[in-house]
Structure formats: structure tokens, C-alpha cells
């Protein structure tokens, strides 16, 4: 199968998955009463005049399949409902407003996780059952068992409470006040970039400083998985025939590892980037809540906190579901490029 057919096939497979995702959210909605569901349909506060009118307008007492089509057509128009909790407003708009903080955080975390993960995994496999392997293994089990919310609290206790080095939030008070003044234009919402664009490098530095603890906290949660997969995939690759033949033709250990083993062992790690994405999406819920970063994760946690804002919760779940499906599609296509065998089945 050529690459093009492969991509087209994957894209076609995307449709039933996305429909499935919406069906699951819709099924969850059926637990709620029509009155509770109304918030998932309205587009402005003024509309929320009479409950009965809204139920009538969106057919919330119609048969289930009619309701599904009404709901889906709302979703396709980008209407995920209305947030009754602060920030009040359309769900999709609120989610998009929160995205820059999360993007800023994850853009810095992902490379840290991937490189530490690959580095430690390779080191552990090459020195199997030696000291490095044991240390890597133990630290990754410890990191994996560490309750992420507890780690966040410990980091804040040490670096904020005890040392007074950096506090929660995205910026220090001074910088946070400055970015709201007219002298500062928000181009991207990502302070690190906006700081430079505004000619205020100290904002960039402050934003960077405030990212260190959240990045550590997120990394500890997710790196263990990469280390584990990288280690076992290296171990498997090391036993392959081509390694023996590379050794037999007289290549040194370094060349064998770099040119023959690691490349083949990286293939499963590509699949892992899909899982890493899920890990980050999950991780930001906890990390942003603890470090008080106004991103997507904090939004989700805030909306879910009882009494929940169900339009926000379900809208966010749908958003992450679709996002995650698309990420997995990209991973699959990348996988097809790297490993031609995948395209065959």
C-alpha cells in the first residue's frame, strides 16, 4: 500500500471514531434531565429566559435520535454550550481562551520528557542489570508512584514557602500587573513570546522561571512510561540478527548502538507520543490546579468541582476526545512513514 492510500484510509477511519466520541458524550448526557441539559445548547445568557422555551426550541423532550441530530448540528456550528460558572460565556470560547497557558507549559515539557525518557531508557538497556539500569529503574518506579498533586505541593513548599524563590501562577505580581497595562500587547497569549515581541525580555524570563516547577512536576509523572518502553524495546532490538551481523563485521559498541539498535528501538516510542499527549492532557489538570496556571487543565478541574458546570465538563471532554483522536491520527501517519511494514496490513 502506498503512503497516499494509507493516509486516505486513516482519514476515513477517523470519521466513525469521531462519531463514536460524540455518541459517548451524548450517552452520558442522557443521564441528565432536560432542564440540566439546557445549558449545553444555549448560546447566550439572554436566551436563558424561560426554561420551557429552550427545551421546546432544542427539542430536549423529543426522541433520542432526533435529539442527537439537533445536538450534533449545534456542535458542528461550534456551539458547545454556555458556562454558568465563571468565566461565564460560550464554552468553546472559554476553552480557546485558556489554551495559550497550557500550550506554553506543554511545549516546554514535551521535549524534556522525550529526551530524558529516551536517554535514560537507552542507558538502562545498554547497561542492563548494571548500576545505571537499577538506578533508572528504581527512580522511574518512584516517579511513577509519586502522587502528582503531592509532588506539586512538596515543590511549592520547598521553593515557594521555604526558599521564597518562585511562587505559583504564570508570572510574579509585578509582571502580572504590567501585562495588563496598555504598554503590553497580547499577540499570542503566550507570555514568553509576547514578552519578546513587546521588547520586554524580563517578562519572558519571569514566565520561564514560573514554568520550571510545573515542568518538573509534569515530567516526573510522565517520563517513567517512556523510559520503560524505550528500555524494553532496546532490549528487544539488541537481540536481533542485524545487531549480531553488525558486531560480526567489526563495528564498535557505540556504532552498533547508535546506527543499528537505537533507530529500530525508537519505533514504539513514536506510538508513545500519543500516550504522552494523553499523559500531558491529564497531567495539566493536576499541575495547573496546584500551580494556579489558568490553562485548560485548571478550567476542567474548576468546571468539574461540585456543583459542576456540566456544559463546561462535557464540552471539555468532547474537545479533548476529538483532540486526542487527531493526535493519534498524526502519530499513525508518522508511524507509517517510519516503518513501512505498518502500511501493509
Amino acid at each position: 500500500m502506498g503512503m497516499r492510500t494509507y493516509i486516505i484510509r486513516r482519514l476515513l477511519l477517523l470519521i466513525p471514531t469521531i462519531i463514536g466520541v460524540t455518541l459517548l458524550i451524548f450517552a452520558v448526557m442522557q443521564v441528565l434531565s432536560p432542564e440540566q441539559r439546557a445549558a449545553l445548547y444555549i448560546t447566550s445568557e439572554k436566551e436563558a429566559g424561560s426554561m420551557e422555551e429552550i427545551i421546546e426550541k432544542y427539542g430536549l423532550r423529543e426522541p433520542v435520535y432526533v435529539q442527537y441530530f439537533v445536538w450534533i448540528s449545534q456542535i458542528l456550528r461550534g456551539n458547545l454550550g454556555w458556562n454558568q460558572k465563571s468565566p461565564r460565556g460560550p464554552v468553546l470560547q472559554n476553552i480557546l481562551n485558556r489554551a495559550p497557558a497550557t500550550i506554553e507549559l506543554t511545549i516546554f515539557t514535551a521535549p524534556v520528557i522525550i529526551f530524558t525518557g529516551i536517554f535514560l531508557g537507552v542507558a538502562a538497556a545498554v547497561h542492563r542489570d548494571k548500576l545505571i539500569d537499577h538506578i533508572t529503574r528504581i527512580t522511574s518506579i518512584i516517579g511513577w508512584s509519586f502522587p502528582s498533586f503531592w509532588l506539586g505541593i512538596l515543590l511549592l513548599a520547598i521553593f515557594y514557602a521555604a526558599l521564597g524563590w518562585v511562587g505559583p501562577g504564570r508570572l510574579c505580581t509585578e509582571a502580572a500587573v504590567f501585562v495588563r497595562t496598555p504598554q503590553f500587547t497580547s499577540y499570542t497569549g503566550i507570555y514568553m513570546i509576547d514578552g519578546l515581541l513587546n521588547g520586554q525580555p524580563w517578562i519572558t524570563l519571569d514566565a520561564l522561571k514560573h514554568l520550571i516547577l510545573p515542568v518538573i512536576s509534569l515530567t516526573v509523572q510522565s517520563v517513567a512510561l517512556i523510559v520503560r518502553v524505550m528500555r524494553s524495546s532496546m532490549l528487544e532490538a539488541l537481540t536481533k540478527g542485524y545487531v549480531v551481523s553488525a558486531r560480526a563485521k567489526g563495528l564498535g559498541q557505540r556504532e552498533v548502538i547508535n546506527k543499528h539498535v537505537r533507530r529500530n528501538a525508537l519505533i514504539p516510542v513514536v506510538t508513545l507520543s500519543g500516550m504522552l499527549c494523553a499523559g500531558l492532557l491529564t497531567g495539566v489538570v493536576i499541575t495547573e490546579t496546584i500551580f494556579n496556571i489558568p490553562g485548560l487543565g485548571q478550567y476542567a478541574a474548576h468546571m468539574a468541582l461540585p456543583p459542576p458546570d456540566l456544559a463546561g465538563v462535557l464540552g471539555f471532554t468532547l474537545f479533548t476526545g476529538v483532540l486526542f483522536v487527531i493526535v493519534n491520527l498524526i502519530v499513525d501517519i508518522a508511524y507509517g512513514y517510519i516503518d513501512p511494514r505498518i502500511r501493509l496490513d
Binding site: 463514536g20 458524550i25 489538570v285 479533548t320
Partner: peptide, 13 residues
């Protein structure tokens, strides 16, 4: 198709 913790959050709420 969903990150599991987020789906759990939706179910619980």
C-alpha cells in the same frame, strides 16, 4: 479515544 482521567472526571461530575 479519551484520556482516562478526563473521562472519569466527566462521569463523576
Amino acid at each position: 479515544a479519551f484520556p482516562s482521567l478526563l473521562l472519569c472526571m466527566a462521569f463523576v461530575s
